[in-house]
């Protein structure tokens, strides 16, 4: 079991008002699953994503990631988990504008404390994997939207995390490029990675093999779509 959540609550206090963003979520995700978390805005899917990504901790309940209880960790321990276990892909790419593609991909390895030459080598590998071997020295503003998102994917993969966590990864891309990116996730999944996709678009979610629908801070439905044997690695 990679992710094990039981009775997860997340309460925000907005002045005197308490908002139950998550109101008792039970969720298990196995290694090498490809899951889409769906739901309208306000459903709690962003909060769930932040907790899965260890950017936030639950108010109540248990979140165990790789046999480790996350709720009780300190800020620095959470940072280490994010660094080692989570590969983020954001809607707005979130690349450092002043750094070239190679350096952007290197960043997680910088915080992992890996030496310079090793970083370079692994960042290069990751960029070649997403087909950007010839764009390493380009800065984000010299790349197309699709290329930027592929740099971001390379960055998410470079430290070999347990989970690739993608938040509306095609939201800022045109349809064709979006399909391209989704194909990348499919490949990543086939290589044995766990992919969690957060989206409100059904078209995007259908690439996944399991759809978790959120509503009002709870899981409304959890549907597995049969995987064609051909797709299995």
């Amino acid at each position: 079991m990679l992710i094990h959540m039981r009775d997860l609550h997340r309460v925000y206090e907005l002045g005197a008002e308490k908002v139950h963003a998550l109101a008792g979520v039970d969720l298990d995700i196995e290694r090498n699953e490809y899951v889409a978390i769906m739901g309208p805005s306000g459903s709690g899917k962003s909060t769930l994503m932040n907790i899965i990504g260890c950017l936030d901790t639950p108010t109540r309940g248990s979140y165990v990631l790789k046999e480790q209880e996350i709720g009780t960790l300190s800020d620095d321990e959470l940072a280490r988990i994010r660094n080692q276990e989570i590969g983020f892909v954001f809607q707005t790419f979130n690349l450092l504008a002043r750094a070239d593609a190679l350096h952007n991909v290197e960043l997680p390895l910088v915080y992992a404390g890996i030496r310079h030459e090793e970083r370079r080598r692994r960042a290069r590998e990751a960029l070649e994997l997403v087909g950007l071997g010839d764009r390493m020295k380009h800065r984000p503003n010299e790349l197309s939207g699709g290329q930027r998102q592929r740099v971001a994917i390379a960055r998410a993969l470079v430290n070999k995390p347990s989970i690739i966590l993608a938040d509306e990864p095609t939201g800022n891309l045109d349809t064709a490029t979006g399909e391209d990116i989704m194909a990348s996730f499919e490949r990543i999944w086939q290589q044995g990675n766990t992919v969690i996709l957060v989206t409100h678009e059904a078209d995007i979610a259908k690439h996944a093999h399991r759809a978790v629908r959120m509503r009002d801070g709870r899981i409304e439905s959890d549907v597995r779509t049969p995987i064609t044997t051909a797709a299995r690695p």
Partner: peptide, 12 residues
């Protein structure tokens, strides 16, 4: 925010 998401600690 990005740096923190990628694993930067406070001290970093």
């Amino acid at each position: 925010g990005v740096r923190k998401a990628l694993g930067a600690r406070r001290r970093d």
